[in-house]
């Protein structure tokens, strides 16, 4: 196996040569490219990448340009996972037959997809890849909405968010369904490594990506991606909003090893109230009206309950 890239601190990390290029068409302040940069810079290995349809795909492969300095393929909305799984299966077959042209190069296989392409549309495909046990990594850029097509709700959209297909107004407080617990579902597939990451915690992210790439088998990474356009905050606040999300425990950072053992990898020194996170975003603005107070209370209670559950699971080691 190839040697792991040494990244002790941010100064050392900053000597990385990016394999993702500028002049892509992502919105100013988009967290997608911050995440992609952190993932790609975590390794010096050759990469074979795929992307499902979504913001990342449409913005980085606008004919006649590509923003990727590695082998990259896009096919359809649902099959970023199977595209890369197919490449991985072919690589294995050629290797077994001794027909690889450069047998000393061992590429890593990574697929990117938005939450729409992963939680909803491509779910069956991802499930298939994980069941077959391909040696690949699947990274979800989870911005909790179909941001590319104008902000429709997805099954990742949390309760109370106003989206174009679940708008808040006189009769509704917006999205009514709870966010799907994708990490638990993927851990239940028996995946050797499942983790949640956030771009503002770059060190945690790099550690998990490196661990994931070194792991044999299908690895699932859920990356929180703050969306300046659909979450409705100013572009320069992307990192501040991400900090609020991780410190309010709305996005707890943890990993699940072999589908069982859960480790919490980030414990905020000062846990901030969930309403600070919600209040910073336009999509939750209506929750601060008096008639929607019950949604706010429910939010805080649910986040507390989930955190309690994670801690207990970590303690029990199951």
């Amino acid at each position: 196996m190839s040697e792991m890239k040494k990244i002790k601190n941010l100064k050392e990390f900053s000597t990385s040569a990016d394999r993702f290029e500028g002049a892509n068409l992502l919105c100013p302040g988009c967290a997608h490219s911050i995440i992609v940069r952190e993932v790609l810079n975590a390794t010096n290995d050759d990469l074979i990448l795929a992307a499902s349809t979504g913001c990342l795909e449409v913005c980085t492969a606008v004919y006649p340009y590509t923003s990727w300095d590695a082998s990259w393929i896009h096919i359809g909305f649902e099959n970023g996972s199977t595209a890369v799984a197919g490449a991985e299966a072919m690589y294995k077959a050629l290797k077994r037959k001794g027909r690889l042209k450069q047998p000393d190069r061992e590429p890593k296989f990574v697929a990117f997809g938005g939450d729409g392409a992963s939680y909803d549309i491509g779910f069956q495909w991802i499930s298939g890849c994980f069941e077959r046990g391909h040696n690949m990594m699947y990274v979800v850029l989870d911005n909790e909405v179909y941001a590319n097509t104008g902000g429709q709700r997805s099954s990742s959209t949390p309760i109370g968010a106003s989206t174009t297909t679940a708008p808040a107004g006189r009769v509704s407080y917006g999205e009514k369904m709870n966010k799907k617990d994708m990490l638990a579902i993927m851990a239940a597939h028996g995946s050797p490594y499942v983790a949640q990451v956030a771009p503002n915690k770059w060190k945690d992210m790099v550690k998990k990506i490196q661990h994931g790439l070194a792991t044999e088998g299908p690895v699932f990474i859920n990356a929180m991606s703050a969306c300046t356009t659909e979450w409705k905050f100013l572009p320069e606040d992307t990192i501040a909003i991400s900090d609020l999300a991780t410190d309010s425990l709305v996005f707890p950072l943890y990993e699940i090893i072999d589908g069982r053992k859960l480790n919490i990898t980030y414990r905020p020194k000062n846990v901030i109230p969930v309403k600070d996170y919600l209040g910073a975003q336009g999509r939750f603005k209506h929750l601060f009206k008096p008639e929607n107070k019950h949604v706010l209370d429910e939010w805080q209670a649910r986040v507390d309950r989930d955190w309690e559950y994670l801690q207990r699971r970590e303690e029990a080691g199951v």
């Binding site: 941010l10 002049a23 940069r37």
Partner: peptide, 12 residues
């Protein structure tokens, strides 16, 4: 030279 700007710049 803390490199915070480098790591968090979305546009390289």
């Amino acid at each position: 030279d803390c490199q915070f700007c480098w790591i968090y710049c979305p546009d390289i």
